[in-house]
């Protein structure tokens, strides 16, 4: 099948900084890929190579088989940049009409108004829009050319929680209907909510890559946490400041069975699955 994004060995340098350092990336239609990594990891730079805004120093990237930045590639995608700003004299309705015209389409304004909660904003000039309001317009614009691929750089930064949830459910629907999504985020829960796969990069390099399902399967680990009355057995870790002891285990049942068998006096037992964040930290450590 033709990949929405097919990138091999991407490199991008800025003077002495290698912002993207040999990254491979693949994204199929009907799939959402989350790009994670600390500030300055190279996420936005990687997206600028995918959108064709910057030429690569090495490597190739194609969008549905077309070179990134080509007209055919731009036709297939909608983009929300990390920092969006629009002329203050223009209204969202006018911007949507403009973007749709560039795609050679009629604007589907009513659908976008409903999807991105633009009812009160649509005919206001954008001077004075709040950060979250600008963000919602920028997101709506990414979807106004009926793209087969959406490239979204920190789409929900600055959005209130209702808008975040609306965005997540909209993205899931879009993916379910065959759209491909590449998004960056600093929110683990957002990646968990919308993505099938994630790629983690650090200092321009890919340090982790896989489907969320795989990661959870290989890491079916629970965290056991409890308070133990002295004397505690020496196989338990030392207590934290609150007097609780925490223990990660693939078999939490066995931990509890052992506690009971050894007659350890404990209370306030808590067992919870490890969060994606902790799974990633562990996997990265192993990698």
């Amino acid at each position: 099948m033709l990949q929405a994004i097919e990138a091999k060995g991407l490199v991008k340098r800025f003077g002495g900084v290698t912002a993207v350092d040999g990254v491979d990336l693949q994204l199929a239609p009907g799939e959402a890929l989350g790009l994670l990594g600390p500030n300055g990891a190279g996420k936005s730079t990687l997206l600028s190579l995918v959108t064709g805004l910057r030429p690569t120093d090495a490597g190739t990237v194609t969008i549905f088989g077309h070179p990134a930045g080509s007209d055919a590639a731009r036709r297939a995608m909608g983009v929300t940049p990390q920092s969006a700003a629009f002329p203050p004299q223009i209204t969202p309705r006018e911007l949507i009409a403009y973007a749709a015209a560039r795609h050679g389409m009629r604007p589907d304004t009513d659908r976008l108004i409903a999807a991105f909660g633009l009812q009160r904003l649509i005919d206001r000039r954008m001077a004075g829009f709040s950060g979250g309001e600008v963000r919602r317009v920028a997101l709506a614009l990414a979807f106004c050319g009926a793209p087969k691929l959406a490239v979204l750089d920190e789409p929900t930064t600055g959005l209130d929680s209702a808008s975040q949830e609306a965005f997540q459910s909209l993205t899931r629907d879009y993916v379910a209907s065959g759209g491909a999504v590449l998004l960056t985020s600093h929110h683990w829960d957002e990646i968990e909510a919308v993505c099938d796969r994630l790629t983690m990069i650090d200092r321009g390099q890919r340090v982790l890559d896989g489907t969320l399902a795989e990661m959870r399967a290989t890491m079916r680990i629970n965290q056991v946490s409890l308070v133990v009355d002295d004397p505690a057995p020496d196989w338990l870790p030392a207590p934290d400041a609150d007097g609780r002891r925490h223990l990660d285990s693939a078999d939490s049942d066995a931990v509890v069975t052992r506690l009971v068998r050894e007659g350890v006096a404990f209370h306030d037992l808590l067992i919870r699955p490890l969060a994606l964040k902790d799974i990633l930290a562990t996997l990265r450590h192993e990698a």
């Binding site: 959108t51 064709g52 805004l53 007209d71 731009r74 036709r75 995608m77 983009v79 940049p81 920092s83 969006a84 700003a85 629009f86 002329p87 973007a99 560039r102 795609h103 050679g104 920028a138 614009l141 050319g145």
Partner: peptide
Amino acid sequence: ETPFVLWQHTLPGA
């Protein structure tokens, strides 16, 4: 150099 111009560059068309 504005973000708006960069966004415009991501749209199709000459």
